[in-house]
Structures are given as structure tokens and as C-alpha cells.
Write a protein that binds this DNA or RNA. Structure first.
Lengths: 217, 217, 217, 217
DNA sequence: GATGAATGAGGATTCATTCAT
DNA sequence: TATGAATGAATCCTCATTCAT
């Protein structure tokens, strides 16, 4: 009798358990990645942090890279969902200083709450040779930056736009590192403000579209 | 017998041999660090790259970290020796654009020739928790940046100066990553120019000393 | 409640269901054993092949060996049922060439349809140290061979008979391997014929019972 | 001084040690392969049997398969060196019974002393899908058998010769299994004699070249 | 019964480091 | 000094088996 009652609740509960495990493992992975970096993190360490056996981890992920990928994708989703509206047309119409507030603040906030995001983007620490998984995050965010740049400076050549977007993103990542390294409170806030200053000074000459990329030479 | 002949020449030769070994090992380490990153580099790989047995490596370095430290120190020395005059009083009197050329160009050049330098600074990719060895490089270079900042904007509070120096350095590192990632030639040159543009726009408001750190708020 | 309705129909249905499960699992095991060999086959792989959860498998078999044993027993039964009449008195009266046809052909056919049978007999590939499960198959079939030998050469000592039976069986197994390895069609048929030739030439001197076992010495 | 004395003796001694280790590891592997079979043998078990650490094993062999391959090659060499003259022209001129003695006896002897040889040939127990490493042994020995067959029955078609060689080799392997399973002494000798009987009866009709391959059909 | 999550010991392999020569 | 053999703990990953649901 009771077997027939809820033909779906049982599998659902199972799935729910599985989902919880995955979330738990990803959270654990985030912690360990943050503490030791992606490369130095072992799957066993993740399992230990999640208080599960190594076998359990491998029931949900085929290897460490898959964990990083899934974690990155989820964070990206989360970020888009939480702060995706930052790039809406209405905001794009704002003057640059306000736009920076509207765009940078939520990004910073999100990264403060999920410092593993930056860790994943730093990824395999090899400079100039970024691994696939982290590329995804990179590429995805870069695209957004490019779009904003394109909106503000539509007359630039694609190469110039790409270069400016790369640079903007590099600045942001660098600044974000400083922000995360700063103790929460006034110091962190000041660092955030400083980062916005950099971006504002760098990008404002582009706004009217009359400035060439390399004015110093 | 031959040990008695010249009580100094042999030790000296030994020292010379040792120095060559060390240089050889450090060069090998630089290569492998660049290719695989610090964490993923094994001491055996370094020894192999140096065409030396693992035992020999451990005769000169107690562990992997010591190699990175020594490598960093030597690079720092080299850099100071090659481009240390950039910070001489004469140069500091230059207007900012010229100063940037004079300071940034050699730094970039040096890093293009020694890409391992950036690799070491990225170091253990962990954000906000930089390992000892890389701290040294960091701290050392930061000090230089701070000095320049102090020269240009002597009225700033130490905290502001530190913040600006940190940010400047972060920008430089981020830009340097882009430079190294760009293919040599026009693209790389443009990236270098762009980096200088960022720095110029960021720092020029400080020059006359009338600008506060956070104009956007 | 519903348990009281028909005290037999439900258990029976259950037993029937159980039987189906067992058959399904054994079939799956046969497939996987054939493909990867007994040792390299995992119980999880069997369960997957049977589209069943690992837990279900263990509800019917205590471990991997039990699966092999049961599979062997069932195949033995099947074989006896399908081709057991080969050894009936009427057939034993046939002259050797015809008897070989009558005995060998169905055996070959059965093994072509159930290649796992040979896999089980090879079993744990260890020579001279055959595992329990496979021993059963072995012993059982050997007995049949011995009986036929005894019928044809009743004057031989038990030891000689045992030796000849062992050798006959070894030849058959070796030949069967070649048969299964040969592509179906003319090549396989020729291999079968060749196997019968071997057996005929080996055994025909025994038929009149006047030949000793070792004529070459 | 003493450093210069024997510039080769030291490396040589090292090489000698390495060679000893390799021999020791191969011997250990042979033991374990014989006891548990190739598939069920773990590299750790081999290392343990050789009383060395797992790391040591991997200094000499990249993986388990490489051990099996090297072991097979060495055994093949050894066999050829010890009993290779069995196939010399002079022997091929012998009548079949004598030839069998001359060929089979040393082979049997060698295999009794190196039972791992058969274990390697059984290899991955999968029927009809023999792994590469074991193929080498197989192919190599088969070639010898084919050559002898070709010498005795030059008029046969290549297909028939191949089939007869395959069958002869299968018989030998099967018989060899029985020989190794038999306790040393009279019983083993009788088994050897029986194997030769089989081969003699199977192959003697071919000698005059007048017999077709499949007389029963 | 059925499921599939969970386990943890074990297997292959690597690596920082030590040691005998 | 230099070598490279040796170590053994640690890594990634699998698998037979158990257990809660």
C-alpha cells in the first residue's frame, strides 16, 4: 500500500539528497580551493572537508577539473541571477561614474561572498596559458565587459575594444585581489573606491568616443 | 696529493662549480615553473631539466620553496642591477609620462625576458594568502612603487599612499600578464602602450597633489 | 491487507519476479565476463549491464563468485538438457567418427551460443590452480569425457583413462578457443573440422582397446 | 685520487645494481603472476614480493603491462638461447617422433622451470581477445610452429598450414597446462608422453603430404 | 524488493626527499 | 660532489559491498 502512495516522492527525496551532496561537495571544494589554490587541492582533501569518503565524491564528479567546472558554472549562474540586471539598457544609459557603481559594486559584493570565484579565475597559475575550465569564466565575463565597452565607445576598432576590455578586466581582477586581501570594513571600502577610481579615470576618456587608445605616444 | 697543491684554488674551483650548478638549476627551475607553474612543478622535473640527478639538486637547495626563493632573489638583484637606475633622482624629476616610459619599459622588458618573475609573483595562486617566498618579491617591488608615489604625492597619508601603491602595482601585474600573453610584435607593443595609458590616467591626477584619492564619492 | 488476499499468488509472483531478475543478472554477467573476463569484471558493471542497481544485485547474489558459480551451473544444466542425449547408449554404439560428430557438434554449437562458458572454464587464468567455481564445470564435464573413454577403452587402467580424458578435454578446450576466435562461416567450420580430426586421430587407436597409452616410447 | 681510478666501475656497479633490481622485480612478478594471474596481480603485490617499495618498481617499469612485456621478452630470449637449436636444419631432418622429442622436451622443461610463461600466454583471460603483450609471445611461438609445419607439409595451402599450426599450438598449450598441473615425477612424465602421443597422431598423417586437412567430412 | 548513496580499503602512480656508493 | 637508487606517504580513482529509504 504505502509503496503506491508516493511514486515520486522517494526518487525525489533521493535526488534531493544527491543535490545536497553535490552542493556540499562544491562548497567544500570552494573552501579548499580558496585556502590552498586549485592545483594544490586534492580530491581527498575536498572529500574530507565535505566529511564524505573519496568514493562519494567520485559518484558525483569524475575528477577535480569537473568539480572546478561545475563550481564555476554555478557561480556564474548565481552571479548573473543576482546581479545580471546590472547590464540592462537602463543602466547602460547612466553616466560612467554611476554605471561603475551599478556594475562594480554587485560584482565586488558577489566576489567577497564567493572568493573562490577569483581563485578559479586565477586557476592554473600558469601565466599566459590558462586552463580550459577557467577560460570559461574568463571568456564569459570578458564578453560582458566587451559589450559595455562597445556601448560606450562604438567607434573603436574591434582590436582596440578587445584590448581595452582585456585591460579593464585585468584591472578589475587585480583590484579585486586587493579588495579580498583587505580586512572588511573601512579599508576594504577604500580599496573598492580606489578600484572604481582607476576604472573611471581609465575609461572616462572613451565615453565621448573622441579619444584614441594611446594618447601618450 | 693534489689536494695539497693549492689550498685555495681547489675550493675556489669548487665554489665556481657550485655556482655554475646553482645557476643551472635555477635556470632549469625557471623554465619548468614557467611551463607548469610553481605548484605543479616537481623537483625531479627541475633536476631532469637541469640534466642533473635529484640528489644533486638537494645538495644545493633544501627543498622546492628554497629554489623559488633563491630564484626570486636573484631575479630581483638582476633587475635592480639592470634597471635600478630608473628610480634615480634625475628620473624622478621627469614629468609623469616620461617617467612612466623610463620606469615601465625596462620592467616590461625584463619580465619579457624573465617571464618566470611573474609566475613567481603569482606564486601559489591563492588570493589574499601569498606564500612567503613570493611575498619577498612583492614587498620589495611594492616598496619601490611606494617611494615613487611618495615622491609625486608627498601630501598623501601613509594609508592612501599604500593603497595607491598597491593598486598601481596590481595594475602593473595585471597588465604585465596581458603583455606576456600577447604575441611579440605590434600586439604586444600596443598592450604595453595601453598599460602605460592606464597608469598615466590613474596617476596623473596625483602629480599636482591637489586630488583626493576617491573623487567618485 | 492485500497480503492476506492470496497467500500463494503473491509470493509466487514475487518468486517469478525474482527469477526474472536472476536470469537478467546472469545474462548481464555473461556478457560482461565475455567482454572483459571474470577478474576484470566488476559487480557494478554487471548491475549496469542489467540495468539494475548494485543493491539489487546483492539481493540475489552474495558476491561476484556466486554469480559465476550460478551462471556455470545454469549453463551446465542447459547444456545437459539441450545436448545431454548425446551420451545415450544408442550413440555410444556409433563408430568413433560418427560419435565425434554427435558429441562434438552440439557442444561446439552450445559454446558458440554461450561463449561465456569457456570464459568461465578458463576462469581465473591461473594455470594449475583453478578456482572453485570453475572447478565445478570442469569436473562435471571431465566426468562425461571419462565415461565415454571408459566405454571405448574399458581395459585401460583408471590412471590411463583419467589421463586420456584430461588430455581429450584439454584438446577440446584449446580447439574450442580457436573455434570461437575464428570468424563465423567457412573458417569456423574448417576449424571445427580440424578439431574433430585431432580428436579422431588421437582417440581412434583406443577404440579396439589394444593400444597402450604411450606408443612412442 | 680514488675518484679518478675507476671512472667506469662505479656507474657499472650502479648499472649492475639496477639490473639486479630489474631481475628481482621480474622474478617477483613471475611469482605473483603464477599465483594470482596477470589481471589479479597488483603492482604493489609485485613490489612487496620483491621486498621493495612501490616507488622503486616504478623507477624501472612504467606500469604493470611493461613488466609483463619485459618478462615475456626475457623468457622468450632465454628459451631461444637455451633451446633454440631444436629447430636447426639437422633436427628438422629427423623423423617426426624424434623431432617431437627434440622439440617438445626442451619446451616442456623450460615451461616447467618458468611456469609464468604459460600464465603470460593465457594472459588477459578474455577468449578471442588476447592483449598485446601476450600476443607477442603467442605470435612468436606460432611462427616457429608454422615453420615446422611448412617443412613437413609444404604442399598445404597457407590457410591449412595456419590452421594446423594454430591447432598444434593450442594442443601444446592445453597439454602444457596438464603437465604443469601434474605432480612432478611419474605422473608428469606420463602426461608429457601423452601430449607427444597426441601431437604425433595428429601430425604424422601430414608427413607424407598425402592427407587432406579434413578427412572426416 | 529496489534503489542508489555511501563507504573505505585497495590499486596504480607520483613525488619530495634521503642515502649508499 | 654527484649519482641515481630507494623510500613511503600522498594522489587520483575504483570497486566490492552495505545501508537508509
Amino acid at each position: 500500500m504505502s509503496e503506491d502512495v508516493s511514486e515520486e516522492s522517494k526518487p525525489r527525496r533521493r535526488q534531493a539528497r544527491g543535490e545536497r551532496r553535490i552542493a556540499q561537495l562544491l562548497q567544500a571544494a570552494a573552501n579548499v580551493f580558496c585556502t590552498y589554490g586549485y592545483t594544490a587541492t586534492s580530491t581527498n582533501a575536498i572529500a574530507r572537508e565535505a566529511s564524505v569518503s573519496p568514493g562519494t565524491l567520485y559518484q558525483y564528479f569524475p575528477n577535480k577539473e569537473a568539480i572546478a567546472i561545475e563550481l564555476g558554472e554555478r557561480l556564474l549562474h548565481e552571479m548573473r541571477e543576482a546581479h545580471g540586471q546590472a547590464f540592462t539598457p537602463g543602466n547602460l544609459a547612466l553616466p560612467l561614474p554611476e554605471l561603475l557603481d551599478v556594475v562594480v559594486d554587485p560584482m565586488i559584493e558577489f566576489n567577497c561572498e564567493n572568493p573562490v570565484f577569483l581563485a578559479l579565475m586565477h586557476g592554473s597559475e600558469v601565466p599566459g596559458r590558462i586552463a580550459e575550465e577557467h577560460d570559461a569564466l574568463h571568456a564569459n565575463l570578458l564578453t560582458s565587459v566587451r559589450d559595455v565597452i562597445a556601448h560606450f565607445a562604438p567607434t573603436l576598432s574591434p582590436e582596440e575594444r578587445a584590448r581595452i576590455a582585456d585591460m579593464t578586466f585585468a584591472i578589475f581582477k587585480g583590484g579585486l585581489g586587493l579588495v579580498l586581501a583587505a580586512p572588511e570594513g573601512a579599508e576594504r571600502d577604500a580599496t573598492i573606491a580606489e578600484l572604481k577610481t582607476v576604472l573611471l579615470r581609465y575609461l572616462s576618456p572613451l565615453v565621448d568616443g573622441t579619444v584614441t587608445t594611446t594618447p601618450t605616444r
